[in-house]
């Protein structure tokens, strides 16, 4: 595995999970693989911390789960975004983008601008 992976910023795993399941129902392992696939393996996700987060999001009503069949005909638990989760994802994404803009702006500032 690529050793130049970045560690996940605190508090961003929720958002990434919500995004991952917003593209279609996924089981736990699928969530992990999809995030790695989209990030082109540049993010390191602690596998152990994935499930507590999934359980918490479900507890909060942002995602729901149901048992279904996996690609190779095995029983797996699939997670899907709820309406509340969709709203949450939207506000979190906007917040993140605004924050990224502000931080990027600060980092790009030159002495003349100040």
């Amino acid at each position: 595995m690529d050793k130049k992976q970045m560690e996940l910023l605190q508090g961003t795993l929720d958002m990434l999970i919500l995004k991952a399941v917003s593209l279609g129902p996924l089981h736990g392992c699928g969530v992990l693989l999809r995030i790695q696939q989209i990030s082109k393996d540049r993010l390191e996700i602690q596998q152990g911390s994935l499930y507590p987060t999934l359980y918490r999001l479900e507890h909060q009503g942002l995602i729901t789960s149901e048992w279904g069949e996996s690609e190779n005909k095995r029983k797996a638990k699939y997670y899907r975004l709820t309406a509340a989760g969709k709203r949450k994802l939207q506000t979190e994404a906007e917040k993140w983008n605004r924050m990224a803009d502000v931080i990027a702006g600060i980092l790009q500032s030159t002495p003349e601008e100040v």
Binding site: H27, G28, L32, L33, N72, R74, K75, A76, K77
Partner: peptide
Amino acid sequence: EMDAELRFHIEAFAED
């Protein structure tokens, strides 16, 4: 269910 889910995860990841 929790047990089954975690076992499935490890197996699916190994398959991958």
